[in-house]
């Protein structure tokens, strides 16, 4: 009892909060990790009765799986690079220049979120069909970009806006050309926002399943597409192993980019004016 007396009411509340937080957000993930390494886990045992790596072997030795991993990564890398090239100029213009219809252009990107994705994919499918883009690599890259245009334009734009114009002017006064100023002053200072947006782009491409299923059938089986069939056809142990493989890149990216991931870089992107 001494323990409960020594903690104040506030501490107890805090303890409850963090317990609920962890249970709700992390229990489903922990469950997958346990499942992935379990050999036998019959109902109603609380934990697996035996452990095994059998499904790891199965998943890793499966050609289809390794091909889907390669495919997903190449698509995600291309989508990210293309999005950066296409969107960064617009992001800079929205932040720094005044031009006619600026607001209309800026807010038109909201349309990617306002129109239901599934409906959009179906209509894009109709277009792709006419242009022979069904079941092509290009088609998949394009459909993934639907999800990334808004993030890649808004978040970096907010980052550019937060670079003080005076710093650019100082560099220009010292005789640097506009391009040099952008490259050596503006870009490094806006880098955190651009990196956050790129990570989002990369992960949303890795994660995209609906559009890929629609335009990539039958030749382009990305990781999430394979995940759908594994869920349907294999025991949950196999699904869990594959889940971990699919989540691993995310965790590595998160750790690598940890210092850039502040709440502000993201939040500002959604409040562009």
């Amino acid at each position: 009892m001494w323990f409960f007396k020594s903690v104040s009411k506030r501490n107890l509340m805090e303890f409850l909060l963090v317990t609920l937080f962890c249970l709700f957000f992390f229990m489903p993930l922990v469950n997958l990790v346990i499942l992935a390494f379990s050999g036998e886990w019959q109902y109603p045992n609380k934990f697996p009765t035996s452990w095994s790596l059998e499904w790891w072997k199965f998943v890793l030795e499966n050609d289809e799986v390794s091909r889907s991993i390669m495919l997903s990564f190449s698509i995600a890398i291309i989508v990210t690079i293309l999005s950066i090239i296409i969107c960064i100029p617009a992001a800079y213009a929205f932040a720094r220049l005044q031009f006619p219809l600026r607001r209309t252009f800026l807010f038109s990107f909201l349309l990617t979120n306002a129109f239901p994705k599934m409906g959009l994919y179906v209509a894009i499918g109709v277009l792709f069909y006419q242009f022979g883009l069904m079941n092509t690599f290009t088609g998949i890259v394009l459909i993934h970009m639907v999800n990334t245009l808004m993030y890649m334009t808004w978040i970096p734009s907010a980052a550019f806006k937060n670079v003080h114009a005076s710093q650019e002017e100082a560099a220009r006064d010292a005789g640097a050309s506009p391009f040099k100023v952008f490259w050596h002053v503006t870009l490094p200072m806006a880098a955190p926002g651009i990196i956050v947006a790129s990570i989002f782009t990369f992960l949303s491409s890795l994660d995209e399943a609906q559009g890929t299923l629609l335009v990539g059938i039958p030749d382009y089986q990305t990781m999430p597409v394979v995940m759908y069939s594994i869920i349907a056809d294999y025991p949950s142990t196999a699904g869990s192993v594959f889940s971990i493989i699919l989540t691993l890149p995310t965790i590595i990216l998160l750790l690598a980019a940890r210092r850039f991931l502040g709440a502000d870089a993201m939040a500002n992107g959604f409040q562009m004016k």
């Binding site: 090239i85 296409i86 969107c87 100029p89 617009a90 992001a91 800079y92 213009a93 929205f94 220049l97 005044q98 031009f99 006619p100 219809l101 600026r102 252009f105 038109s108 990107f109 349309l111 990617t112 970009m145 245009l149 890649m152 334009t153």
Partner: peptide, 12 residues
């Protein structure tokens, strides 16, 4: 301004 927005907007 308009020229810089175009690549992104045309994709949209």
């Amino acid at each position: 301004g308009i020229a810089m927005v175009m690549p992104s907007f045309i994709s949209l």
